[in-house]
Amino acid sequence: MQLKERLQDRVFSLAASILILCIIMTFIFPTQFPTVENFSQLLLNLSIDTIVAVGMMILLISGMFDLSVGSIVAFSGGLAGYLMYYHDVNFIIAILAGLSGSLLIGFVNGWLIAIAGINPMIQTLAMMGIVRGLALMLSGAGIQNFPYNFIYIGQSKLFGLQAPVWYMIFIVLLFSFLVNRTVFFRRYYFIGGNERAAKLSGIQVEKMKIAAFVLSASLAGIAGILLSSRLGAALATSGRGLELRVITAVILGGASLSGGFGKIFGALLGALFMALINNLLIIGRVSGYWQEIILGLVLIVAVGLDQWLIRKMEK
């Protein structure tokens, strides 16, 4: 492949940018940046976002997105916490309840979008509010004092890395394999590229869309359980603004709002890139206000650069 084509492959260009960023930071902050603690913390911070981003990437590949994932994160942790704290339910059943609740929300989203024909933006925007309300009802001012078994899920360590990081790595590898190699997941590229042609190629577009929303909501549910386990508390406000952060990461990772493009690794790299910038600002003692401004600029530059390259290629 030529360099120009390589540059158009976002997974490549993002990985290169991350590498360069790491090298620069190692030189500027040799005592603070390249340490095991810093990296372990950095990966822990991005693990929740990345798990949600994997589901969002699949939705964006098929030309849709889900704004309710942030609320689902709060809801699933809240439901599990509510059952364990107020009703002394076994932690496994509580987790399953949180996950099934999320799955159901995803199904309702998918059904109303694919079968009833509601626009994904409107449907998931509405669901975002509804589910946030449910989360508030469940966890109110916050629930604490979870059983040890539940806490263990998110706070244990393996080879120096926290459990959520391992879950993230597993989910990214699993879905990367599935999306690259199975006929089922590859169909999302067809649906995102040309829905009508996908149907006329014999693809069950409606069912596939419902499956994508169920999957995305379930991953958000898993993220919610992990988050409340890690924090040792279920908060009604957790996951606020997460949906936009995740969409930003996925777009940075090479997805297009019109569908048909994107790779699962792109979602991970997008989230990693954002976490690195964040890390840089913290170590460099830059005011937190700058973080949002810089991320906004980075997104515009990345997408703008892409457009410029495409135009250059066509000439």
Partner: peptide
Amino acid sequence: KAEGLFLHLSISENIFSAQLKKGFYN
């Protein structure tokens, strides 16, 4: 363009778009 092709995908991906058999894609 509107009903038949996936313009953003390659020739071989287009040809395999109608593959109904589930399983792994090689």
